[in-house]
Design a protein around this nucleic acid. Structure first.
Lengths: 338, 338
DNA sequence: TTGAAAGCGCTAACAA
DNA sequence: TTGTTAGCGCTTTCAA
């Protein structure tokens, strides 16, 4: 392995000079610099980033704390899309990504800041964390720069990339209202997701503006899982046959809802309209194709990395990035006819 | 940040003793060890892995070189499944994963071994690399332990996880043959994928065993892309209306093929039967549901990580792991009737 | 414009 | 059983 010493020896200078030459300092004779560069090319030299990190106290790595890298979560590849976006941005910089393989077991034995300090990450991006997750509290207390995805918290060291979930949900429900639906149910995720809280808010708001009373028994939790949503919607429709439309807080749950509706012998969209949330890949491929509130998940990842790097370089004016959502109308919604 | 020095001072011993105590060496007085452990718990100490790596010359990290972390490749989340598998295994160990964000630009400016040495990775897993990729040659020349996914190369330092692609393809085609099909076309990936070469072999073999002549003009390349496959199949069917079944070397291409067939006004499976390869998530959700040769991609990732770690610990008896494939019969294939 | 020396946090000979 | 010392590869004062 070629080290800086080898270069110094081969070029007949000191390691100090090599370091300075290679890092672009001005106080190096151009002749010397050229020589050093030539030698290090020849010897295929590449600095040891770990050693550099040790002395500089930064590592040019971004830590990734994602829950949902499990087999089950392959369905909505939200996690993967975020990852792709982050990867794309970091490919444009000299940061590398380190994936903390943390399952629930490890979480208990290693604290967040331990994880980060061990690997000396410069900053962290967190995705898929629940509001009751112990890590979340640690993040806020820690001084390691961090960007949260879809959790609207900001501080000196914490930034956030998200969308306006209240608005998104509201517009999704408005779409159903504009089609003449009045009896609109909702399948939400769970209480420990910020987005669920916000989307419920948007649902209520849309109804309220039309003076339609909110009925708590028409809102069920599907835990963002297809099977759970299917089960819940099946019961929901049994108890409330007057429902003509359902707003689902995720596409995966919408797919579960569709299954339940089909099982009950109802047709989509003729008898029941469905709106999802996310616009995952499956949304376009299932039958009927899903009307949904699209989020640009890839971009969320990209912007999260961008924001974090800005924060690391003290160039961030704002610690919040709000992305747009967009209603995509496909085949699962239609006008209500009594 | 708590360092080993802080612990030493607080515990009233030398750093050496702290190091030994924490690393479980036997030549430490149990009283001293307890004291040290207590202190380091109290101070929330966690060793700096980078510093340790510098002196031990290993970093407890596995490098991941994946191509296909791009926006386009979200469709088949093969890359993601592999990643999940790797992540799962590494979560069971104390290895962390480092993702090399390498796009084609970076590839040219940094060599494989530079990438690895910079970050001092102990070993590498490579996925999605082409046979004509310059990195592949470097991998073989380098002495860094490496596991390749779906590229059957072995050496002192190189291992491989794959399936029997010849057999898989052969069985897929046999399925069509057993349904009475004779005019079976194939949509392959591209010439620079090992799996494509092997699957073509399997296709030929199956035909040969039934004494059906191989017709090169019935094999098209879809580059593993949906649109490309759609385009190619459209032309293929135009030129050869006698084709009654198509074997596709990937599900994504099978989906493209299905689109082309529908566009031509033909029905699946009544007029054309389709067999895919991979069993991606979409395969079950599209209409008609896709008959396909299933690979356990997740397991490939898991086994790749397992093999690599074994190699790193010199416990690997074999450098090759062969996984099973399995034909999943769904709705896209049926008996040929003239 | 250059080099010597110190030190980042850690482990490992060697001595005591 | 413990401590002293050296050193991993690098950057950075400080002096020359």
């Amino acid at each position: 392995m070629t080290t800086i010493k080898d270069i110094a020896k081969a070029a007949g200078v000191s390691v100090t000079t090599v370091s300075r030459a290679l890092n672009g300092y001005s106080d190096v004779n151009e002749k010397t610099r050229e020589k050093i560069i030539a030698v290090s090319k020849e010897l295929n030299y590449s600095p040891n980033i770990l050693a550099r990190g040790l002395v500089m106290n930064k590592s040019k790595t971004i830590g990734l704390l994602v829950s949902g890298m499990t087999r089950q979560s392959l369905k909505d590849n939200l996690t993967f899309e975020v990852l792709c976006g982050i990867n794309q941005f970091s490919a444009e910089t000299d940061y590398d990504l380190i994936l903390f393989s943390t399952d629930s077991t490890k979480q208990r034995e290693k604290t967040y800041s331990q994880l980060c300090r061990e690997r000396q990450v410069d900053g962290v991006i967190i995705q898929g964390i629940r509001t009751d997750d112990p890590y979340l509290q640690e993040v806020l207390e820690s001084d390691i720069p961090c960007v949260l995805i879809d959790i609207p918290i900001e501080s000196e060291t914490v930034g956030c990339v998200t969308t306006d979930n209240v608005l998104g949900a509201k517009e999704a429900v408005n779409h159903l209202l504009s089609l003449g639906h009045q009896n609109i149910a909702m399948v939400n995720g769970h209480d420990f997701a910020f987005v669920s809280q916000k989307r419920l808010e948007g649902y209520k708001l849309a109804l309220q503006e039309k003076n339609i009373p909110y009925r708590a028994e028409w809102v069920v939790n599907g835990a963002f899982r297809e099977e759970q949503a299917e089960y819940e919607v099946y019961g929901l429709l049994e108890r409330n046959p007057e429902i003509t439309a359902i707003f689902c807080a995720s596409d995966v749950m919408a797919i579960g809802a569709i299954k339940a509706i089909k099982t009950r012998g109802l047709s989509i969209p003729e008898q029941i309209s469905i709106v999802g949330y996310d616009d995952i890949l499956l949304a376009t491929y299932i039958t009927p194709a899903l009307t949904t509130m699209a989020q640009d998940i890839y971009k969320m990842g990209y912007e999260a990395a961008k924001l974090l790097v800005k924060m690391l370089e003290n160039k961030a004016e704002s610690h919040q990035k709000l992305l747009e959502t967009q209603l995509i109308i496909r085949e699962s919604t239609t006008r209500y006819n009594s």
